[in-house]
């Protein structure tokens, strides 16, 4: 199950709507091993495409160095589909490189840049196997075990 706080959820949806029809992409990172989606980072889609996304290689290195310094890891890796459903494509599955992350797909195909509901779904993608999981939106993510 993915637990995500309302503010972060709204920020991901807003990012997807703003960038539509281009695919929006980014991460929500958190302390290593915590599974807490705490810090939202919008990334630039270097491909600038409605059907593909890729982080710029320099941005990617910067992001991972920053996570390393802060003892963080990717908790949510999200992107939007602007023309298709919020389900991982073959490309998404083949390129999924973080077995510990929740892969979130937001589809903006219904309302584009405008107000209105979006599909927001989360998956585990491990060794090419996709497993959908429940998304629970909370006021604040539950404290990690170490701090409780």
């Amino acid at each position: 199950m993915l637990q995500i706080d309302r503010t972060t959820y709204d920020a991901l949806v807003a990012h997807a709507k703003r960038d539509h029809p281009v695919e929006a992409c980014g991460m929500v990172v958190g302390p290593i091993g915590s599974d807490r989606a705490e810090r939202h980072i919008e990334m630039v889609n270097a491909a600038g495409s409605p059907t593909f996304y890729e982080y710029d290689s320099t941005d990617l290195l910067q992001l991972y160095k920053e996570m390393d310094e802060r003892d963080e890891e990717p908790v949510v890796i999200y992107h939007s589909h602007s023309e298709t459903e919020a389900y991982p494509s073959v490309t998404d599955i083949n390129l999924a490189g973080e077995p510990g992350a929740h892969y979130v797909l937001v589809s903006t195909r219904e309302h584009g840049n405008n107000e209105g509901p979006v599909e927001f779904r989360s998956y585990r993608i491990i060794d090419g196997v996709v497993t959908e999981e429940e998304v629970t939106i909370v006021d604040a993510v539950a404290p990690s075990e170490e701090s409780s």
Binding site: T51, Y53, L61, I77, T91
Partner: peptide
């Protein structure tokens, strides 16, 4: 430095260099 800009597999290395490998974060509807 991304090795694609410095010779890819031919990129020169010397003692003390630091190498980082990262999978691309990429995907998309097609």
């Amino acid at each position: 430095e991304d090795v694609r800009f410095i010779g890819s597999l031919e990129a020169a290395l010397s003692d003390g260099d630091q190498v980082v490998i990262l999978p691309a974060v990429a995907g998309g509807a097609r």
